[in-house]
């Protein structure tokens, strides 16, 4: 339960981080909040030769609200995403999801860039990045990239990031004014990884559903969007039968695993139930019936 020996470098700029990562030739790990990485080091599941600590890089902890997008710095901690008045106003679904991440002490340290780079299939931020069609902005020796969230998560704990690439910013798309939203997850105990979670945004236009977005986590190799269910809802008038059909489309889409916490069947069932509930809440909010 003690990590193997490693070298440690606290960098003070993105350039310095990239240089260290490049020189280590794939043997280095980046540490930000460390709330997922350090347990893996303690268990010796990972034994990097070098830990590149990015916590002291200035200018990566910010929230900027723009017309189309909200840009959030990679070092923004979960507690700030949960508490920020700007995010609560412009991306309430993100703030609501952040309140469900692990526990107080973990949220005090964990970071946006760290969670996306770690890509746990049962973590809230990858799901919210997919829901809000985030662009993940990276820095790399050959120049940075903007990667769409849908191209970023390749599998459990696997992303499109190169070994010498660092997430520096995430640009979430702002749902249109008047959008309704909802987030619900079910975990056996407060703060545990969720068995399943669903997040939704949508609008109502003349009584019909517009721009429905449904994202899930904990029910597949990565967080995912339920495109077929979204297509079913687009342009339709809400009703019980429609929501039931959307829930059925979600159940057909997901491929959960069985583990000691829950069976695959139960997780699939939950995905359907939570889809129906979140759609109801989002519709009520879009209709101005709920806060």
């Amino acid at each position: 339960m003690k990590p193997a020996a490693f070298e440690y470098l606290a960098v003070e700029s993105v350039e310095q981080a990239l240089e260290a990562l490049g020189a280590a030739g794939g043997e280095a790990k980046i540490v930000a909040g460390g709330q997922s990485l350090v347990p893996m080091l303690n268990f010796r599941l990972l034994q990097p030769s070098l830990l590149v600590d990015v916590n002291r890089i200035p200018g990566l902890d910010f929230i900027e609200v723009e017309a189309e997008r909200v840009r959030v710095g990679a070092l923004t901690r979960h507690w700030r995403q949960e508490a920020s008045p700007e995010l609560r106003r412009h991306l309430p679904v993100l703030s609501a999801a952040m309140a469900e991440v692990a526990h107080l002490a973990i949220r005090n340290r964990g970071t946006l860039g760290g969670s996306l780079s770690h890509a746990d299939p049962a973590a809230e931020l990858p799901m919210i990045a997919l829901l809000l069609e985030a662009e993940i902005v990276t820095a790399a020796p050959a120049g940075g990239r903007r990667v769409a969230a849908r191209d970023f998560f390749l599998g459990a704990l696997t992303t499109d990031l190169a070994e010498d690439e660092l997430v520096v910013e995430v640009a979430f798309r702002r749902p249109a004014a008047g959008s309704g939203w909802a987030f619900e997850e079910l975990a056996r105990r407060s703060g545990d990884f969720a068995l399943a979670a669903v997040a939704v945004t949508l609008r109502l236009e003349g009584g019909r559903i517009a721009e429905p977005r449904i994202a899930l986590m904990g029910v597949d190799e990565t967080a995912l969007r339920a495109e077929a269910a979204e297509a079913l809802l687009e342009g339709e008038a809400p009703g019980e039968a429609l929501l039931a059909a959307a829930a059925e489309a979600v159940r057909a889409r997901v491929q959960p695993n069985t583990d000691l916490h829950a069976s695959a069947d139960y997780r699939r069932h939950l995905a359907g139930v939570l889809t129906r509930r979140t759609l109801q809440t989002a519709l009520a909010r879009a209709a101005g019936e709920a806060a």
């Binding site: 339960m1 440690y8 606290a10 350090v38 347990p39 916590n55 107080l104 002490a105 973990i106 005090n108």
Partner: peptide
């Protein structure tokens, strides 16, 4: 020593943190 039990919780720069998920060198 994996951030689950909370017994090692301390205050780090004004906010609680798990001491088992932080290296001493990081607290410089």
């Amino acid at each position: 020593e994996q951030g689950v039990c909370g017994a090692c919780t301390v205050r780090l720069d004004g906010r609680t943190a798990r001491a088992c998920l932080t290296f001493a060198v990081q607290a410089e």
